[in-house]
Structure formats: C-alpha cells, structure tokens
Design a protein around this nucleic acid. Structure first.
Length: 231
DNA sequence: CGGATTTGACCGGCGC
DNA sequence: GCGCCGGTCAAATCCG
C-alpha cells in the first residue's frame, strides 16, 4: 500500500483516522506512543533509503513497519479511515486526482495473504513467507488504488474458485521490480484485495515525505507529505 | 505516434 | 506423462 495512504494518514492529520472505540492505539506498545501510520508504508514497499524533504531524518525501517502492521493485525483493527485516491490508478497518462476518503476494513496478514494468493501448498513448500510481501483488504467499489506510484498492467488472470479476475501490475519506474496484484475478495466482492511484493528503490513520483521520530521508542513516523499537483 | 492496456499464448511447478 | 493452475510474455489494440 502506499504512501498516499501512509502519508495522509499522518500525525498531522490524525483526526482523519478513525478507529473502533474500544481500541487504544496510543497505549499499544506497537504504536510507540503515537499513532503509527507506518504499516501502510511497509505494505507499499517503502524505499529503504528514501529521499525526503530537508526536514526528514528518515523513515521507518522495515521491521518497524512490520511491527506496526502486526500491531493492527493482532488488535484486530477493522476500520481505518484514510484519505486516499481510490479508484484512480495513476499512470503516466493520468494526472493525480485529489484525495478521497477510503476505508481499509481489514489488513490481511502477510502469510495468509500470500497463501491466499499462491495457494497453501506453495507457501508450505517455500517454508516461510518472504517479508517483502504484504496484502490488505479495502471496501471499495473501484479496484484500483492510487498509491502514488505509477504502475503498468502486465497481466490479467481468472483464478480458481473465484468469479473475479486477478490483475497484475508492475512498477513502471525503470529498475524497480515491485509488483502488485489486485482482485476482488472471492467471499465478499465489495472488498478489494491488494497485494504488494517487493520494495521500491525510489520515492513515489512527485511526492516529498516528512518523517518524525518518537523520542521514547526511536520509531519513525510519517509526519506529512507534499504531493505536487494536488495543491 | 508513443505509451499503456488487453488478452491469448506460453512456461514452470505441482499433484495425480 | 498429463492436466491444472498461477504467473508472465508479447503481439495486437487502444487512446490521448
């Protein structure tokens, strides 16, 4: 998932994030004392050494991102509202649209998502799941999510036991081999399941991220962003 | 006209 | 060995 999501879902825009009333993210150890938006970056395959704005000291390390991600999974987070441009996959021929609110209903644990995508046998065969794959489920009428990156569609397949086709995308940035698969949930077509694989070796085009570090935990958080063309 | 998308073909892994 | 399945390729087509 992506940065448009990660960044908008920032400390500065914490009021744009809605959690179940019985959740206490501010006290959860995974959140590092602050509302963690970093798991979105993990899903998106944040650049390992991104270039941020001048005020940005860096961004969450993969492990930290996974921590946050697992935090939500463990807590059973079921409703997170984030500003994102759902329904408008950005391509080189399409300018970015203004953000719209979208609801991430469920984050799919990496292993199960991978199993879901490739089959339990394949996962068992590999022994373990690569840590650069992650998936999530979003209730959305449209399938494409503008995550800030440019993607090139390279395949479409119908999958067994599902009436919905699976679409394959590859990051269109030269030298970046991040891929993502998008398909509607076979059990509930109102959900879109997106799975990312790999780590971007570049920053989201036209986007500058500002990170902040929590003094107590040492974790980094996306504190803000600027996306050219949106303002 | 160049770049993105579509879509059938092709390939490799796996189970029987 | 054969068929099934998921993933990828690439030629044809579309579109701005």
């Amino acid at each position: 998932m992506h940065m448009a999501l990660a960044s908008c879902y920032s400390l500065a825009a914490a009021d744009a994030v809605r959690f179940p009333a019985d959740m206490a993210f501010h006290r959860h150890p995974c959140s590092g004392g602050g509302l963690s938006s970093t798991f979105f970056g993990a899903a998106a395959g944040f650049p390992q050494q991104p270039t941020f704005g001048s005020a940005a000291p860096g961004l969450a390390a993969p492990q930290q991102l996974r921590d946050a991600f697992e935090c939500l999974s463990d807590e059973g987070a079921s409703s997170v509202v984030v500003p994102g441009t759902f329904g408008s996959m950005r391509t080189t021929s399409q300018p970015p649209r203004p953000p719209r609110m979208a609801v991430i209903e469920q984050v799919v644990p990496d292993a199960s998502a991978y199993a879901h995508a490739r089959g339990v046998a394949a996962v068992a065969r590999e022994g373990s799941v690569r840590d650069d794959r992650i998936a999530f489920r979003v209730r959305s009428e449209e399938e494409v999510i503008d995550d800030g990156y440019k993607w090139r569609k390279y395949g479409k397949k119908s999958v067994k036991n599902s009436p919905n086709p699976r679409n394959y995308y590859r990051c269109s940035t030269e030298g970046c081999n991040v891929k993502k698969r998008i398909e509607r949930d076979r059990d509930d077509p109102s959900y879109v399941v997106t799975m990312y694989e790999g780590v971007h070796n570049h920053v989201s085009p036209g986007t500058i991220y500002y990170a902040t570090q929590d003094a107590a935990s040492g974790r980094f958080f996306v504190a803000g962003m600027h996306q050219f063309g949106l303002d």
